[in-house]
Design a protein around this nucleic acid. Sequence first.
DNA 1: TTGTAAGCGTTATCAT
DNA 2: ATGATAACGCTTACAA
Lengths: 378, 378
Amino acid sequence: MVFNALCVVLTQEYFVFVPDVGVTGRLLVRGPYIVPMKKDSASITIHDIASELGLHASTVSRALNDNPAVSKKTRALIQAKAKAMNYRPNRMAAALRKGRSDLLGVIVPAIDRHFFASVIRGIEEEADKAGLHVMFCQSYDDSDRERKLIEGLQRLRVDGILLSVAKDGGNEPDFYQSIIDSGTPVHFFDNAPRGFDAAAVVIDDRRGAYLATKHLVNQGVSAIAHLRGPQHLDIYRDRFKGYQDALLEAGMAVREEFIVDITSHFDNGRKAFAALWSRDAKPTGIFSASDYSAAGVMQAAQEQGLKIPRDLAVIGFANEPFTDLMTPTLSSVDQQTLSMGRKSTRRMIAHLKGDDSDNQRIILEPSVIERGSSRLKQ
Amino acid sequence: MVFNALCVVLTQEYFVFVPDVGVTGRLLVRGPYIVPMKKDSASITIHDIASELGLHASTVSRALNDNPAVSKKTRALIQAKAKAMNYRPNRMAAALRKGRSDLLGVIVPAIDRHFFASVIRGIEEEADKAGLHVMFCQSYDDSDRERKLIEGLQRLRVDGILLSVAKDGGNEPDFYQSIIDSGTPVHFFDNAPRGFDAAAVVIDDRRGAYLATKHLVNQGVSAIAHLRGPQHLDIYRDRFKGYQDALLEAGMAVREEFIVDITSHFDNGRKAFAALWSRDAKPTGIFSASDYSAAGVMQAAQEQGLKIPRDLAVIGFANEPFTDLMTPTLSSVDQQTLSMGRKSTRRMIAHLKGDDSDNQRIILEPSVIERGSSRLKQ
DNA sequence: TTGTAAGCGTTATCAT
DNA sequence: ATGATAACGCTTACAA
């Protein structure tokens, strides 16, 4: 019992009637007295509830956890009392005792990319269902920060980590393996390391790029450029491969002067346009590995007086919501983000329940979203 | 000590040499023996480190917390050992004992709105500096969910909660007051309840709206419509007031037919344009309380063949990054998001350190970002 | 059905 | 400078 208030009563005379005894009389009260204040709900424990009810803390614990061993009556009594006292179970204490925090750690490069916000939504849905809480962190694509975040989550004793690897590519597969070996389950999504068997849910980037490029081919575009992401990352290498697949299938050459290296930013799209238009051969279509860069290209092209899609058809990758706000709207590739989050989380939950056998790579199917920036026919 | 591996050795003969004693001989080993496996780093405790070093756990604790009472030598020894053993302090246990989790709870409507993602970045910066960890949650503007999240954070024993109130406005000021009374410090940002004294960092919405509308006036726009946010929310009432302030100052009437009620969505912008253009009087400028709706208006207007800003000048509110990607780029009002996050967090930290006197409303100054959608004069 | 007691991994207050 | 010990709030095996 904690005392946080001092009630000073020096001397006070009360006129009292005690009903149970039927006695009336005078009562002289002297002080000071220390009187317990109403406790903060954060400091109310099962012991407080127990003592109010003349029970033991263990019974209260059982009742609040719906343990069938406790009688219906006392359970109802206890639960009502807990509610009345505004009791908040201390999850730290429970976690410490149970050796399980019911916390899931999630690390993404940045939460304000719609792609990740949407995956997170999928994760949240499944975690909520399972009664897990989720701790989101941003690596800002910085692998040093990613390592620190992982260690922080381990200190918090999260039950598992869902990770989309930082795109600076600074952490080796060995590092991730060592985390898993240290006893923290790690499942990957989106950008997953290769080189060892780990549970992962990824998109088929090669096929997504193939479909996007093929879409341009189908629209009758014959000179297709590619804004290519950093080639030290698997996902961007795969997108480049898919681009080549579609060109080769259509009998078109992969032309060096039609490839511009970018990172996923708006300004890089503008620069890419400038680079392409400084060369002799001009493309009539662009497949960009990034929506942001595609948006930059569109803006720069329009400033040059080009009509999109007539003079230049554009398609991006990731289906960010702003693609729908542009003029014309920007075609893109959808990555089944919600599904990615849900699937990842469901597998992690299965893993935590003891099924740690599933360390396959699940590969989701992307789909092209056709919008104004690439619609030439029909 | 936990044993998680069984090493079965039935009978095995070893030829051994014991250097310290200088004895050579035969050793007959019988089994089975239970052999401790290398422990998961999550299960290594200060007791393990202590016993490896022949010290006591309390000394290890002191050393790892840089308590000056422990000698330089042993401290270095202990810290090296902890590193070698890949020790991860159990924050749950520390929090339980210290009565302080070093966790900050943050609730925002949605993390994929750039406004909130940016405030969060500011929060993260300051929290990192102070060694606090942050738990982000999304209310999706649902006040039921907001209540559940708050309770969840209380169970986690976060030291304080930073809250941007859900925009469905379902929770009364009394509710928030009761949370604070229950002992959990709550500071508000962005959308803060009125009716009681609570620490809050908000933007001067009225002034932001005034500046935006005045900007249109200065560009020579004479018929200015307003896409008006839900009037049960202070922030949108204020933006409406600022709009009126600027009109009155310019000697313009506030015309009923130029006001359309929206919620902050792209489609509502499109609908608003349709509504405005179905009426007799057509505006030549629009101040929208939301960037998303402003984007919708722009798109719908352009589809009708209107030239922006020539036929219709547009300015939004919030300065979402997509405003820079549009054609033309969309003017908006910046809300000092980073600053909002930083200031909020710094005050909460001061509060947690014992200074709970500061429950003022801090009001930040907004600024107009002029872009293509409203630039009529040079 | 309920009570008792031990223990989860720390930190803080004593001793030594 | 270090060790012993209790306590934080909970769960759970065991006892009654």
